[in-house]
Design a protein around this nucleic acid. Structure first.
Length: 876
DNA sequence: AGATTGCTA
DNA sequence: AAATTTAGCAATCTA
């Protein structure tokens, strides 16, 4: 039998060490993970290196210990444990349990004493003992059989204290460590020691006299000195301090060495905890990754045809797709489940099945789905118009936990404690390794998804109701998904010839500019490489360095603008950049996205992604088509109606975010300004610059006021405002100060929002959308400040998002009600873009503003402006 | 895969 | 003592 080896860990000390050694990390669900992560890596390393046969992690029990009886101030004056660390202790315990390591704490005793007692017992039985802690006091336990590992700097860097090492380092024996501490005291434990005696003096005295007791016995023979006086005056304290510093090796433990056997972790439990904490790198590195969580057996049928008897009044369905590009990819198969019976069929059996098609199109047959929009769009391509969506797991999860990233059923399900479904990656692999496994594997995987959706529906609806978010989900997001699906499937027509023509012009211009830039630089280089460009500008041409990035010189536009007067090349680079951006992103990029079949682009609106409730748009992103500069704005000429004699009609909310702010903060001056229909930036300028008359506001003042207004919405700092206006910080601070004095209600709103976030842990929008802000109480300035700004910004941005979403639903209903041909095509945060036959323009001019302005009633009016034209460019 | 840059509301 | 304005997506370069 191999020699036994016992590892004794000081849980509290190591957790503290890990916490302070690592930056405040946060995982997806907002839990801090630096201590848990550091603790885990330390465990991994030490177990891997030492291969212990027994293990124990000792913790301090309560607040008071036997040491407090002899010295009330013991450990007094200690900083309270930071909440970011306290919240991690439960997870550390979970981790230890998952490792199958014994945990132990004992009333009235500290972890040190538990460790000391067990170390002594084990050494007595000839067991090799290793003690691990971040606290050097423990080194007093070192013997021939006991080695003490103390963490250095980080958490995995370790210094090994044997008696020999202690002798070498201090010239003392391990027992003398106690005397040393008795003399020098310990600030962290509030042990006083002898004032004026530090490490050097203590060591010197102990080398000479051996122990504190012998030192005092020999006191009379010492020559008079300041030092001697101090020692004599504090004799009692010295003895007490030594007593406090002594680790007890005879604590009345209720466990024995036999309870400490260690035989490796419970891999499944450990994976679960790691998953919960988001330790993706550890999960990937672990050699037990292949061990998938044991899944409950699933009964399902892989059938050739879905028959009428399988189609119930209410069912979960899952249409499995190859990937997320549901406007172009293939579908693999369809599973249906009513909780009792689960059937799957390959996609080829779906299209021609009249019963199934009728059932899918039947409004009265209720469907539970994950990502109903994707399902609707894919089925639409197969000639099936999905109706009767009753539940959408993706949207429900998003409302409950906006921070979840990913739309994989397994990810969503796990968030709500459901394990019996595997990740897409586990089934298909990813990247170059992606492939579709055998039909039976797919059938089971897809069936499991349908069953998961079925099982999660009641739980999520209940949670939504508990949060008073059911209405937001059911009346806003769910119907919106249907509308967005229609918009995406409809698509918007792109005139490729227009783009090609623009691309050719750009190409010619870019070639000329390239030549000019090479000429001015004196050599050829890759202008698109910030690194190479940096070398040219700052090394070769010697331009002053204004800003640096992590990796080198910054060559961003705001930097280059400041360098324009320094060298001719700069303005050419700026111009080159502008055109190159248009060429690659908006000409070439857009052309790639045009579907050949209908000459349209079909974006995907991500409805469960942003933390504020906004939509986002991908493949292509149609929410960032250029408009500010004329050169870029011309791209919009390529967006045209799908039919002859139709037009594009665009309607946007004017200053919706400021109006929302006015509504939410109720500031009299701001509310009044909007109620009177004033130009809000002019009004702000009058307040910021202390003017009586609107005529006194210059265009520069208005521009400044506009920047202040934007800043206010984002939770500005003087620095930020100074950057955006290119003014000094002081000037910026004065503007903000003046603003907040003129609109005290806004100031109050900011403070209240932060207060609310601290109290409830989240902020809310008009329609009760939530954003959780765990960092609001962080001790890390940056994290906390960011959370504070988002506490102010999210209700504003999110409520504006609520309003336009509601407007989309109302608009859809109104178009249907009026029996119009007009189609909603795009949403760009505060604007809606329609295509319409010319004959309907007049009606739209009337109903679009009406519907949008009345989507949600605020205490200030909402204002909508509109325009239309033959292309998106002309709708201005 | 991450960093840099630049486009939108 | 240091950083400093919200929310996104995509192209390109570099390691």
């Amino acid at each position: 039998m191999t020699k036994q080896k016992l590892l004794l860990l000081d849980g509290n000390s190591l957790a503290y060490r890990a916490f302070f050694a690592l930056p405040l990390l946060t995982n997806d669900s907002g839990i801090h993970t630096n201590a848990t992560y550091g603790f885990t890596t330390m465990l991994q390393k030490i177990i891997g290196e030492e291969n212990p046969t027994q293990m124990l992690v000792a913790f301090d029990a309560g607040k008071t210990t036997f040491r407090h009886e002899s010295f009330g101030e013991y450990k007094g004056g200690r900083q309270k444990t930071p909440p970011e660390l306290s919240e991690q202790f439960p997870y550390i315990r979970k981790l230890i349990d998952a490792y199958n390591i014994k945990r132990y704490e004992l009333e009235m005793y500290e972890a040190d004493d538990i460790i000391g007692t067990l170390a002594k017992q084990a050494a007595g039985q000839g067991i090799e003992v290793i003690v691990v802690s971040g606290d050097k006091d423990l080194t007093q336990l070192a013997t021939e059989d006991v080695t003490v590992y103390i963490t250095r700097k980080g958490i995995t860097d370790i210094e090994k204290y044997t008696p020999a090492h202690i002798e070498e380092k201090y010239g003392l024996t391990p027992e003398q460590i106690i005397d040393m501490k008795g003399l020098m005291g310990d600030q962290s434990d509030n042990i006083p020691g002898v004032p004026g005696v530090g490490e050097k003096t203590a060591i010197k005295l102990l080398k000479e006299h051996g122990t504190i007791e012998k030192l005092y016995e020999a006191m009379d023979s010492l020559k008079a000195s300041k030092m001697k006086e101090k020692l004599v005056d504090n004799e009692e304290m010295a003895h007490l301090s030594k007593k406090l510093a002594t680790i007890h090796t005879d604590a009345p433990l209720t466990i024995s060495l036999d309870d400490l056997a260690y035989a490796g972790p419970d891999e499944e439990a450990l994976l679960n905890v790691w998953q919960e904490l988001g330790f993706k790198s550890l999960i990937e590195k672990s050699d037990f990754e292949a061990v998938e969580t044991e899944q409950a057996e699933l009964v399902f049928e892989n059938v050739q045809a879905i028959t009428g008897d399988m189609l119930k009044e209410t069912m979960a369905i899952h249409l499995e797709l190859e990937n997320e590009h549901y406007h172009s990819c293939n579908a693999l198969g369809l599973a249906l489940s009513d909780g009792e019976r689960t059937v799957y069929t390959a996609i080829d059996n779906v299209v021609d099945n009249a019963d199934l098609k009728a059932w899918l199109q039947d409004e009265t047959k209720k469907k539970y789905i994950v990502d109903s929009k994707a399902t609707q769009a894919m089925l639409h391509r197969l000639g099936i118009e999905l109706k009767g969506v009753e539940f959408d797991l993706l949207l429900a999860s998003y409302i409950l936990k906006p921070s979840i990233s990913g739309d994989d059923v397994a990810t969503l399900a796990k968030e709500f404690g459901y394990q019996d479904v595997q990740s897409n990656e586990a089934i298909y692999g990813k990247g170059a390794k992606w492939f579709v496994p055998g039909a039976d594997h797919v059938a089971e995987h897809v069936s499991r998804k349908a069953v998961a959706v079925w099982n999660l529906q009641p739980l999520l609806e209940q949670k939504l109701k508990e949060n008073e978010q059911f209405e937001l989900y059911k009346e806003l997001e769910l119907p919106l998904a249907h509308i967005l699906g229609k918009m995406e499937s409809e698509g918007i027509t792109v005139n490729i010839d227009t783009l090609r023509q623009m691309g050719d012009d750009l190409k010619a211009k870019l070639e000329v500019m390239e030549a000019t830039i090479y000429e001015l630089a004196g050599e050829k280089f890759n202008i698109n490489s910030p690194k190479q460009l940096g070398v040219i500008l700052f090394d070769k041409l010697g331009l002053p360095v204004i800003k640096k990035t992590k990796t080198g010189y910054s060559t961003a536009a705001d930097v280059l603008e400041k360098l324009q007067s320094e060298h001719d090349i700069v303005k050419h680079i700026l111009e080159y950049r502008t055109l190159a951006k248009l060429q690659s992103t908006y000409i070439e990029g857009l052309i790639k996205e045009v579907h050949k079949e209908d000459l349209k682009v079909h974006t995907r609106f991500q409805q469960a992604l942003t933390s504020t409730g906004r939509l986002s748009s991908t493949n292509p992103n149609l929410q960032n088509i250029p408009i500010r500069l004329e050169e870029g704005r011309k791209i919009r000429k390529a967006f045209v109606p799908s039919k002859k004699d139709w037009i594009l009609f665009a309607a946007d909310y004017s200053q919706i975010e400021l109006r929302v702010l006015a509504h939410m903060c109720g500031d009299d001056a701001l509310v009044e300004a909007f109620q009177q229909g004033m130009d809000i930036h002019t009004r702000t300028a009058m307040d910021v610059f202390n003017l009586e008359n609107p005529d006194e506001v210059t265009s520069l003042m208005r521009r400044t006021a506009k920047a202040v207004n934007f800043g206010i919405v984002y939770g500005i700092s003087d620095y930020g405002l100074s950057q955006s206006l290119d003014i000094t910080r002081k000037e910026a601070a004065i503007f903000i100060e003046n603003y907040l004095q003129s609109f005290p209600g806004v100031k109050n709103y900011m403070d209240t929002s932060i207060e609310e976030a601290k109290k409830a842990g989240f902020v809310t929008t008009i329609l009760n959308r939530r954003r959780y802000l765990p960092d609001i109480t962080s001790s890390n300035f940056n994290l906390r400040s960011f959370a504070e700004r988002t506490a102010m910004n999210t209700p504003i941005q999110g409520s504006a998002a609520d309003i336009i979403k509601k407007a989309m639903i109302d608009m859809n209903a109104r178009l249907e009600h009026e029996g119009l041909q007009t189609k909603l095509l795009l949403q760009v945060h505060d604007e809606l873009i329609f295509e319409a036959p010319k004959e309907e323009i007049e009606i739209l001019e009337r109903i679009v503003p009406e519907v949008m302005e009345n989507a949600i009633k605020l205490s200030v009016p909402l204002k909508v402006e509109f325009s239309y034209g033959a292309t998106w460019y002309d709708a201005k």
